[in-house]
Simulated assay, not measured.
Amino acid sequence: MAVSSDILRSFRAPRAVVRGLLGDRREARILVYLMAACALIFVAQWPRLAREAHLSDAVPLDALMSGALFAWLFVAPLAFYGLGGLLTLVLRIARSGVEGFAVRLALFWALLVASIPALLYGLVLGFIGPGIEATLTGALVVATFSVLLVAGLRVALEAPVADA
């Protein structure tokens, strides 16, 4: 099934989607999910960065954009792989038999799906600015990520460990 269809289905049945994604165990595929999520979140930063550059002449827009590009496309993937390893370690301490691939898939998929409301959050910050609207939209992004991560981790705890 197409990734866009799976993203939409994740809002209705996140555990079923993650369970289906576990059928194809390729690390390259979940790396693409992570990089796509980071790229979408980078794009979501553009309106906010343009607003900041317009309101203040302290830092030009190209400097703000290059900093965000470096942060989201080079540093964030490494940080999320580290977070995936830490989550795997914690879950293995709590319950043996947890596979690292399933935990990373749950984390990266939750980030990819949460990047969709993150695009809205970026627009709100860019056009309206800080305020209650931005706070509520940011809470929506965090809630989406949290719910999908918990659902994915529950599937990871249920999944049998694949033979290496």
Results as ranks from 00 to 15, higher is better:
2 A>M: 11
3 V>Q: 12
7 I>K: 10
9 R>C: 10
11 F>G: 03
11 F>K: 01
12 R>S: 10
13 A>C: 12
14 P>H: 12
14 P>A: 08
16 A>R: 12
17 V>E: 00
21 L>N: 01
24 D>M: 10
25 R>H: 12
26 R>E: 09
26 R>W: 13
27 E>A: 13
31 L>A: 12
31 L>M: 11
39 A>S: 14
40 L>M: 12
41 I>Y: 08
43 V>K: 03
43 V>M: 07
43 V>E: 03
45 Q>V: 01
47 P>T: 01
51 R>I: 02
52 E>H: 10
52 E>S: 06
53 A>S: 09
57 D>P: 04
60 P>A: 01
60 P>M: 03
61 L>G: 03
63 A>S: 09
65 M>T: 01
68 A>Q: 04
69 L>C: 12
71 A>G: 12
73 L>A: 08
75 V>W: 15
75 V>M: 14
76 A>F: 14
78 L>T: 02
79 A>N: 11
79 A>D: 08
83 L>C: 04
83 L>P: 00
84 G>C: 02
88 T>I: 08
92 R>E: 03
93 I>V: 09
95 R>I: 00
96 S>Q: 15
96 S>Y: 15
97 G>S: 10
97 G>K: 12
105 L>W: 03
106 A>W: 04
107 L>E: 00
107 L>R: 05
110 A>I: 00
113 V>N: 09
116 I>L: 14
116 I>R: 06
117 P>L: 03
117 P>F: 07
117 P>Y: 07
119 L>R: 05
119 L>N: 06
120 L>T: 02
121 Y>W: 11
124 V>T: 05
126 G>F: 15
129 G>W: 14
130 P>C: 01
132 I>D: 09
133 E>S: 11
134 A>W: 08
138 G>A: 05
140 L>S: 10
143 A>M: 05
143 A>L: 07
144 T>H: 11
145 F>C: 05
147 V>A: 15
147 V>G: 08
147 V>N: 09
148 L>A: 06
149 L>W: 13
152 G>R: 01
152 G>H: 02
153 L>S: 07
153 L>K: 09
153 L>R: 09
155 V>C: 02
156 A>I: 00
158 E>S: 05
159 A>R: 08
162 A>D: 04
